[in-house]
Design a protein around this nucleic acid. Structure first.
Lengths: 90, 90
DNA sequence: TTGACAGGCAAGTATTTACTTGCATAATTG
DNA sequence: CAATTATGCAAGTAAATACTTGCCTGTCAA
């Protein structure tokens, strides 16, 4: 089980979560191309793939395989602990 | 200005925030000794000092100098953005 | 069934980050 | 004033992390 905080530490991974928030259930290639559209300096496919592994291991992304496609879905439930760990934050 | 997410990525820094939540306004040495009490393998003074710099640069810790003492106070307001950045998280 | 497409694996490189080491400064205390 | 206490600074080391490179497997369509 990965660390949610460490998963959120990288700006590329946060951009991936933004992207999935905007359009849930994308494939690896869709995420790659849409990231290069928005931010000029897009990461490589392998880099994004490894970021997705980190996000999945932290429970922030769930995946479903269909044929040769693999769809990625955001899961925000692990974020709840962050909001409640240090009080005075409502 | 530092990155709030990167500041939260390190477990020692999160332990410092826990410690300040438990008892706000501690000096560097108080934080060091209380961290070594709870978790056996306490970090060195310099390590904690550098962690505090990161937390302060991220806006999670504010400081007040009085004589030779420097008091550290937690500020949870930067955490609000985290809770609201990715919806479906109330 | 051949080729293109989507994705996976693993080892190596490069960059970041955490920690250490040693000395310096400033405020108190005896 | 000298010694101690609390902290600061900066360069170096060690460990973690992000990224690359090259090849491999499975799926589908012509």
């Amino acid at each position: 089980m990965g660390d949610v905080f460490k998963a959120l530490a990288d700006p590329t991974r946060r951009a991936i979560l933004d992207e999935l928030t905007d359009r849930d259930g994308q494939t690896l290639f869709e995420i790659c191309t849409r990231l290069t559209m928005k931010h000029g300096s897009g990461s490589s496919r392998q880099a994004i793939s490894q970021h997705l592994e980190v996000l999945e291991s932290a429970g922030l992304v769930r995946t479903r395989r269909e044929g040769r496609y693999k769809y990625h879905f955001i899961d925000t439930s692990p974020l709840r602990n962050i909001a409640t760990r240090w009080p005075g934050n409502q």
